[in-house]
Nucleic acid binder design. Sequence first.
DNA 1: TAAATGTAAATCGTGCGCGATTAAATCGCA
DNA 2: TGCGATTTAATCGCGCACGATTTACATTTA
Lengths: 145, 145
Amino acid sequence: MTQPLPLSQLLCFALYSASHAVQASYKPLLDRMGLTYPQFLVLTLLWETDDQPMSRLAQALQLESNTLTPMLKRMESAGFLTRSRDAQDERQVRLRLTEKGLGLRAEATEIPACFLAQSGLDPTTIRSLTDEIATLRDRLRAAQT
Amino acid sequence: MTQPLPLSQLLCFALYSASHAVQASYKPLLDRMGLTYPQFLVLTLLWETDDQPMSRLAQALQLESNTLTPMLKRMESAGFLTRSRDAQDERQVRLRLTEKGLGLRAEATEIPACFLAQSGLDPTTIRSLTDEIATLRDRLRAAQT
DNA sequence: TAAATGTAAATCGTGCGCGATTAAATCGCA
DNA sequence: TGCGATTTAATCGCGCACGATTTACATTTA
């Protein structure tokens, strides 16, 4: 048996604290647009593909209706998107960007670049780090059977 | 200008989703002990050094009193630790492990090892990944002036 | 020593995340 | 065709996170 690691050397804490630090660094930029960080993630998906069912966002973000439903309602009231039942399958809720939601795209997609600058790391390092973390995440999800 | 990246290639989302995946993989083990994930982080710090002021935990976790106060009260009611005002400086709240809190140490410090096994990554990779993520976090915090 | 300054927790409100449950629509199959 | 099983959202409760403010105590300084 090895000695227990201190918090500062735990991968779980590195991820936890880094994720919070990233959200904090995004915050001033998102505030100007009236977005929270998870809402920014939702819009990022809709900027890639507009008019998606909620179930697809849930899949991509690994979030469930108990998180997404109230969040999307707030985004609808704020005027970023519309929610409407699919005519073919009334169980599904389809999400569509409004003009306001579309209008934020150019400004918002600059944020990851600002973030990269703030981090002081070069793009290649950022890319490989992203891949390694995504691989870890996918393996954990797969093990979660 | 480069093209905007899809969500799946954003470092911020990799961190966000991996952090959630790690917490999900810890959950069944923590549930058995009656702990939440942030509570496990608090205990990890107290297992390293018992009898700390709340301000030191706040510094280590980068959390503030608005998060920690209610959380520590819950942990106190659950019997994991005690909270008491420091006699020398009545502004401070000192945290001490109870027998129950101490008793979880051996079992809980095994969790990161289980996690490592689940991840399917070798210890060396885990360590360098942890370091890289911590470096990124620290640079972002430093830029956050 | 009294007033100004600084520091540590606590409090309040809002928005996630998620377990558990419910409701409604669709699908599958006898 | 009809009825059980499945799928999709919605709802409810609780525990973080965090901005903003307040309270209590300590320290500095006039």
